[in-house]
Every structure is written in structure tokens, then in C-alpha cells.
Write a protein that binds this DNA or RNA. Structure first.
Length: 561
RNA sequence: GCCUCAGUAGCUCAGCCGGUAGAGCGCUACCUUGGUAAGGUAGAGGCCGAGGGUUCAAAUCCCUCCUGAGGCUCCA
């Protein structure tokens, strides 16, 4: 069924001559109806499969329109010309009368006679919603949305723990209440408060180190016109991985990489050689369509945050910048005690740009590695489509190797976006662009981190830095006040005043891998001290003063040890 | 996406020769006032991933889909 609903000042019609056998029997000269919704209606062949379904869809839709336009008079006007494939006149007549019946409950209805040639005059109001067309088919019957049922089909990801090891980050993440996954967002992480606490500390550390290393941070839009991705080359080389969306008729892409957005900031005004090397960092959230079979916990996800940075520099600065990135990466990885290996990836088949440029880029990377005598493996044809790269690899609990950091050389993007800087000679030059990431993705990095330390995070990273336990119910208030005191000093604390034995509370806190467990009993209350148990140690230390404990914790947090 | 496997309470799992659900932990309440990895009793909590089929009857058998796991392929 097809309809056109017209918000009209009036309609006037006059039957002239019978057109079909099935025509309605009427005796009518002419009729005029003021202030109404005229619904031109055509019943189609396919509607005969399910007249009831089509009619109720149409009735619902018409009621909605009438409500929106605040009209209570509806005129059904048979208008077969809306379709190329009309139903039999008999079915049409039936459907039209059913439609009027359904509508007559809530609206004042009337109709023009079926099966007649008619003269008519129509005055349509002409506002944006005055002319609306709709189409209904018997198959497309919209089912009632049952939210209870829908809720039922939202399921949490279940782990098949038989194949996973104890230090698998997915198990740690569940046990420590760090994050979860749901079927409504495959490959996208729900970060719980405790997981995000780790995240935020990593970001804080990252910002400090990057500030010291001369980086400036930016943020760019999440969705951008596909125009941008055509310029950057992603449209031709990476389209199968891009989420598409639409905005006022324009096609937009959810960014799968940060560089095209970032480069627009470089382009926002003329640049001088004095600004180079320019190191621009971005914690960029990207989405990539991945084959469903490749997703894996935090290691391989659809939405992730890259600790990206783009360095714009001159050719003579290039090797120094690469060496700088390697040094910063080593410094950060050392902080976490990671063992990694280096891989150099060269020109792939789907490459952009000339071979000569690629050779130049590859030799620049090779030179730095060789000069620093760093061992590396070469992956022929494994580079990004815009340039060769050095990757930092690390192994997980199952012995699989994952790429974290990366340094990618790019002679293409500057060409494509035509970015320039004014040199000492007053002429315009093209900068070289370096893409790099150190964590790689925060998600993957946290996964590796959890496995590497088996969830035993140091105080600066631990989601709960200290947990205060009351020895018995008598000590609940004192324990709460210690916990509150630490909390108000900015520490992440928890309090356990359950009516359980101290042994069982200790056990729980140990299993949550909390670095410091503080027990407050009568002895502590009396002497105003703490009993402190360090995670993993068998014995507690008694009689520790609050200020000594706090000073130690403060030092461990600020030095990140 | 492909091959193999899995999905039952918040978690770990039992039930799976069809007869509409069980345990332990956790949670809540009460008892216990105990000194560093599990004190006791009671209670609440599930449409058995979703949809369809076979059947008098489906968590259980069959089909489709979703999600997850391992591998392949691809990536940070």
C-alpha cells in the first residue's frame, strides 16, 4: 500500500462517472471538507498477501501523522495512480473500507467514493510536514517492540575458562571487576571503575613523559566526511575496515586512524622551519571493522584508543627523531619491565607512492636501528600502505606475539595533504611525517600489563591501593575513619566491615590483589597505629604509624615503583 | 569471514538416555568478638544466549542467528 498524506485547508470532489464494476453505489453531487488530512491511497497487488497487516500498519502511521499535525479529520481518497501494480478492485475496496474502519475509532473519517472518475480541488498547506508519503508491505509488519524480550537477548560474554590460563587478562579482568563485554557491542570494552582507574594512571604517566619529551597534545573529531578519507588514501586502501555513517545526506566515516585529522591541525596555518620538529600527540579513539573471528579480549578489539603522535620534521632531523622515539619507548617499557623485540616492516603490495620514496624511508629506519646496534627482524611486505615501520612486539600468556608500539615513516600523507613549511631560505618545503605509538593501544597494553604482572599491580597503578579491614564490629568506625582519611588524601581505598573473621577478609583482599591491607583492631585503636600487610607477604607489620605508612605509599605512587 | 569448540544464578560448574532447575563461592540477615588466605545458620537470586522446529511435554533433540574461545587470515 502506498499513501500520500496531505495536510489540507480543504478538499472538494465530485464523482462524474463509474470507472469499474466494483464501484461504490453512491448518490452524491459534490462534497467539501475543511481542515483535514487527505490520504491519497493505492492498494497494491502484493497487499493481497496480507490485507489486515498492511491496513493496520497504514492506520497506525496515519494516526501518528494526524497526531503530529493536530488534525482530527481524515479523508481517505482512493488514488490508484500511486502504484504501477494495483490490486484487484475488489481487494482495494475491501482494504479501503477496513482502513477507514480502523481509523474511525480515534479520528473523524470520511472517504471519496471508490471506483469513480472524480473532479477534485485540493488546497495543501505547504509546511514541511504537509506532504508525506509512506509505503507498507504485508511482510514488513513492524512487530511490537518488547523491551523485556529485547533485554533478555542482551548477554554478557562468557569465558570458556577450560582453555585459558590463570594469568589470562580476561580472567583477571573479570575477577578484579575491571571490564566486561556484551553481545550488543562486540569487540568494544565496557570499562568498570577499577579498570578505568588503571587506564587513567597510564594516561597520567604518558602525559608526563610526553610533555618532558616535547610533545603537545591535541584532539580531533571522531567522524569526518569521507572526502577527507579520499584525500588521505584510506578510502582506497582501507575502506573495508571503516564504519560508515551519514549526516544530512553526506557520507561520514568513523575514524579508523588519527593521522588525517591530525594533519589538518598542522595545515590550519602557515608553518615555519622554526616550529620543527613538531611533535603532536593524541589519545585517539578509533573504530575498525574487524573480521569477527579475530577479536580477542583486550588484545584485539573494534574500538580502541591509540596513544598516537605525529612528528613533522625535516629530512635532516629525521634520524634524530626516530632515535628519540625509540629512547622514549624503551624508557616507558622499562618502567613496566617488558621484554620486547623489534621488527622492521617494508613495502607492501597495496602500497601508495613510488618505490624510490619507499627505499629512502626504509633506509632511514634501518640506519637508526643499525647505528644503535639494535637487533631486529625484517618483515618483507608488512608495512602500512603509506610507509614502512618499526614495531615493538611483546608476548602474551599463551606465547602469542602482539604488536604494541610502532614507528611509521610517511612520505605520502604530506604530499596528499600538501603540507608545507617555510624554510630558512624563504621557500616552501615539504615536511616528513612520522607516526608513532608507544602503548600502541591502551586496551592491548593493559591486557599485556595484567598478564605480565598477573594482575599484581604496583600501588601507583592498582585500582585499589589500600583496603582497610575492621577486626571486629567494635572496630568498624575506626576502620572507616582510616579509610576515609586515605580517600580524602587522594588514594584509592576500600573498606571491609563485614561481620566475618579477619582471616576471610584478608583472603578476599589478597585475592583482589590489593597492594596494602590495613587491619584495625582493638590494639590499633588503642595505640592509634596500623597493622599493615603488603600483598603477597605472609606476615603483617604491627604498630605502623599512619604518617609513616602514608609517606611510604606517597613515595611509591609518586616514584611509580 | 573460514574450521573446531562453548554459552545453565554475579562467579565456577553439575543436570543433557526429553517430564519446565541444583551445588559451592559471592550477596543479604542473624549468630559468633575472633589477630593476618575460607567460623556457623537461614534467605534472596535463573524464561537454562536469542529465534524457530520436532513432541502431549525441550535446559536436554534438530535448524538459524548472536556472542565468546582456539586456530587460519588480517592488525594496534
Amino acid at each position: 500500500m502506498r499513501i500520500v498524506a496531505l495536510h489540507s485547508n480543504f478538499i472538494e470532489f465530485e464523482p462524474k462517472k463509474r470507472a469499474v464494476e466494483a464501484a461504490e453505489d453512491i448518490r452524491m453531487a459534490s462534497k467539501r471538507i475543511e481542515g483535514c488530512l487527505v490520504v491519497l491511497t493505492a492498494i497494491e497487488k502484493q497487499d493481497e498477501q496480507g490485507i489486515g497487516s498492511v491496513v493496520s500498519q497504514a492506520a497506525e502511521s496515519i494516526r501518528k501523522i494526524a497526531l503530529q499535525l493536530k488534525v482530527d479529520k481524515v479523508v481517505i481518497y482512493p488514488w490508484v495512480h500511486l502504484t504501477h501494480d494495483p490490486s484487484s478492485p475488489g481487494s482495494a475496496k475491501l482494504a479501503l473500507s477496513m482502513l477507514e474502519d480502523e481509523l474511525s475509532g480515534s479520528l473523524t473519517t470520511s472517504h471519496a467514493p471508490f471506483g469513480w472518475y472524480k473532479a477534485f480541488t485540493l488546497s495543501v498547506k505547504g509546511h514541511p510536514l504537509a506532504e508525506l508519503s509512506r509505503q507498507f508491505s504485508p511482510k514488513g509488519k513492524p512487530k511490537e517492540f518488547d523491551y523485556r524480550k529485547a533485554l533478555n537477548s542482551i548477554t554478557k560474554a562468557t569465558l570458556d575458562s577450560s582453555k585459558l590460563k590463570g594469568n589470562d587478562h580476561r580472567i583477571i579482568g573479570q575477577n578484579l571487576d575491571l571490564f566486561s563485554f556484551y553481545n550488543v557491542a562486540p569487540g568494544m570494552v565496557f570499562w568498570h571503575p577499577k579498570g578505568l582507574a588503571i587506564w587513567n594512571e597510564l594516561v597520567r604517566y604518558w602525559r608526563e613523559e610526553h610533555r618532558k619529551a616535547g610533545y603537545q597534545e591535541v584532539s580531533t573529531p571522531q567522524v569526518m566526511d569521507t572526502l577527507l578519507w579520499k584525500v588521505s588514501g584510506h578510502w582506497d586502501h582501507y575502506r573495508e575496515n571503516i564504519f560508515l555513517t551519514e549526516y544530512e545526506g553526506r557520507k561520514f566515516a568513523v575514524k579508523p586512524m588519527n593521522c588525517p585529522g591530525g594533519i589538518l591541525i598542522f595545515k590550519s596555518r602557515p608553518r615555519s622551519y622554526r616550529e620543527l620538529p613538531m611533535r603532536i600527540s593524541e589519545l585517539g579513539v578509533v573504530h575498525r571493522l574487524e573480521l569477527s573471528g579475530v577479536l580477542s579480549g583486550l588484545f584485539r578489539v573494534v574500538k580502541f584508543t591509540q596513544d598516537d603522535a605525529h612528528i613533522y620534521c625535516t629530512e635532516s632531523q629525521l634520524e634524530g627523531e626516530i632515535a628519540g622515539v625509540i629512547a622514549l619507548t624503551e624508557k616507558i617499557y622499562r618502567k613496566f619491565g617488558f621484554e620486547y623485540s623489534l621488527e622492521l616492516s617494508t613495502r607492501p603490495e597495496k602500497a601508495m607512492g613510488s618505490k624510490a620514496l619507499w627505499d629512502k624511508a626504509e633506509s632511514a629506519l634501518r640506519n637508526v636501528l643499525d647505528k644503535q646496534k639494535l637487533p631486529y627482524k625484517v618483515n618483507e611486505g608488512d608495512g602500512a600502505f603509506y610507509g614502512p615501520k618499526i614495531d615493538f612486539h611483546i608476548t602474551d600468556s599463551l606465547g602469542r606475539s602482539w604488536q604494541l608500539g610502532t614507528i611509521q615513516l610517511d612520505f605520502q600523507m604530506p604530499e596528499r595533504f600538501d603540507i608545507t613549511y617555510a624554510g630558512e631560505d624563504g621557500k616552501l618545503h615539504r615536511p616528513i611525517m612520522l607516526h608513532r605509538a608507544i602503548y600502541g593501544s591502551l586496551e592491548r597494553f593493559i591486557g599485556i600489563l595484567l598478564e605480565h604482572w598477573n594482575g599484581n599491580l604496583p600501588p601507583w597503578l592498582a585500582p585499589v591501593q589500600a583496603k582497610v579491614l575492621s577486626f571486629s564490629g567494635k572496630n568498624d568506625a575506626a576502620a572507616a575513619s582510616i579509610s576515609q582519611k586515605l580517600f580524602s588524601m587522594g588514594y584509592r581505598t576500600e573498606l571491609d566491615t563485614r561481620p566475618a573473621t579477619i582471616q576471610s577478609k584478608i583472603r578476599d583482599a589478597e585475592m583482589q590483589k590489593v597492594p596494602y591491607i590495613i587491619v584495625i583492631g582493638d590494639k590499633e585503636e588503642k595505640s592509634g597505629t596500623l597493622a599493615v600487610r603488603r600483598h603477597g607477604e605472609k606476615k603483617a607489620r604491627f604498630g605502623i604509624s599512619f604518617s609513616d605508612f602514608e609517606a611510604q605509599l606517597a613515595r611509591e605512587v609518586s616514584e611509580r615503583v
